[in-house]
Amino acid sequence: MSGNKGKMGIVGASGFIGGELVRQAAAAGWDLVGFSRSQREPGGEVDEWRLWTDEPDLSGLDVMVNLAGEGIDKRWTDENKKRFRESRVGVVETIVAAMRAAETRPKVFLNGTAVGIYGDRGDEILEEQARAGNGYLAELCEDWEKAADPAQELGIRVINWRTGVVLGRGGAAWSQLRKVFALGAGGRLGGGQQWMPWIHVEDLVGGMLWMIDADHHGAVNATSPNPERNADFTRKLAKAMGRPAFMHAPAWALKIGLGGFADALLSSQRAVPAALLEKGFSFRFPTLEEALEDLVD
């Protein structure tokens, strides 16, 4: 297969978001290079697999996309925090070092980060220029983005892709939500007034390709234009599935059961995609109702 857009390398090509990126990028005309810790043969829409090592081979790539990051939906023990950091900051540092060593460098580095960088901000509307917040997750996300800064000094256009809750078939968030609500065990978390920045996976990936083509650099809120309060998200999901949602998980119970991860569930980030809208990106699923209509059987 030979595309006309150039060659795109993807760390995380076999994951949920990576799989959607492979599908859309191949359709758009990109030649695709995946990175794996084990030897793999080309197959499907991935033209080439390269080994992920301490010195990955980035030769011939026009764009590098990093989607690595171990899931934080577990207790935030010291050991897990080490893994969270290595799979984020460590991976970016490895990519930037490989870029520095390469004879020819990618022109664009899209670094997948998270809206967790804003911390808990209540009802404040958060566009990309908003300051970073406080707390463990915000500080981790800030370090994650700062690790990509040296790539700019190499003349590479850096996009920090701040993702919210990603909804899509096969994704962890949607799979868990669907299972819980199907059992009639859905309900609001804490007071339910915290803002949830969400996005449909098709818009997430479509936005990536749009901003790569749009010559954008800097942060991008990869979220729907219409974030929802947790209580409203719960009500709309229950209605779409035709199930009750009477359950309620008090904040204190979440903190006892989940430890630090409860902070991520209870934090409020009213993030809006100002950069995507300014660059003219058109969302296929701008409202939660439209996304749920697509996802609910």
Rank of each mutant, 00 (worst) to 15 (best):
L140Y: 10
R229Q: 15
W252K: 08
A68T: 13
A98Y: 00
V22F: 08
R23A: 10
A214S: 13
L177W: 04
L110D: 00
G71P: 09
W198L: 07
L140K: 07
G190I: 02
Q193F: 07
E93M: 05
E139W: 10
A172K: 11
R121C: 10
A245I: 01
E41K: 14
A28P: 02
R37W: 07
S87A: 11
V108L: 05
A274C: 05
R243N: 06
P150R: 08
S267C: 09
L189V: 08
A262Y: 03
V96L: 04
R178V: 04
L204T: 09
D62W: 01
V96W: 03
G34N: 12
V65G: 04
A114Y: 02
A173Q: 12
P42W: 09
V33P: 00
V46H: 08
S38K: 15
N80Q: 13
A249C: 12
W52K: 14
N4S: 13
A130M: 11
H217G: 12
K81D: 12
A98Q: 00
A214K: 10
A114P: 02
A147F: 02
A245D: 00
A222V: 03
S87Q: 10
T53L: 12
D54M: 09
G190E: 02
E93Q: 15
G186Q: 02
A264C: 04
D31Y: 07
P225L: 10
G207K: 09
E142N: 10
E228K: 08
M208Q: 08
R88H: 10
G60H: 08
E20G: 04
V166T: 13
M1Q: 04
A185N: 00
V166Y: 02
F181E: 00
K239A: 14
A245H: 00
E103K: 13
R284N: 11
W76P: 15
R23W: 07
N226P: 01
D297A: 14
